[in-house]
Amino acid sequence: MIIPLLVLFIIIYGIIKKVNVYDTFVDGAKEGVEMGLSLFPYILGMILATNILLKSGLLDAMLELLAPIFNFFHFPKELFPLAFIRSISGSASISTLNMILSTYGADSFIGKVASTMQGSTDTTIYIITLYFGSIGIKKTRHALKAGLFADLISIIASVIMVKLLL
């Protein structure tokens, strides 16, 4: 419901403001195509890393060690790879999410929580590195702590929200 409404609103508002809506759409889409293409090397690098991590069985072995902790918090261990990678790399988490959705199904509980996790947070470490790096900040104080804490909360909240609402 929200998507059609938003599209409708954006286009009507554009026409009222005398924007050439079709030309603008095409321009934007063109930029989107370039953006998609420029993602390729990043995603490729991350697919290489995450796929061999998952297929080598190393991650499963690590999960086995951590299983008591997950069980204690009732956190589904299938979601651990995504939770682990989400704050580090956007490309890696896209490829991990894709793997989770194709393994467990997009409409499964795991699939819905994974989607919510991906949709409800951004790549904290990348943003901190980029933004502070651009103005030469060396001492970042509690930025990383606060950012990662918020990520952790959003992971927990994703599980709870999907349980409550979907």
Binding site: V19, F25, G28, A29, E31, M35, L37, I43, I47, L48
Partner: peptide, 30 residues
């Protein structure tokens, strides 16, 4: 892995382009 990557990009591509188009309208109209 390069084939897996192409598949993934192809999945994402259309939506990124489409949404970028729509939001560019929102941006230009103020």
């Amino acid at each position: 892995s390069s084939k897996t990557c192409i598949d993934l990009i192809l999945k994402l591509f259309p939506m990124i382009a489409l949404w970028n188009g729509i939001v560019t309208i929102a941006n230009k109209s103020g």
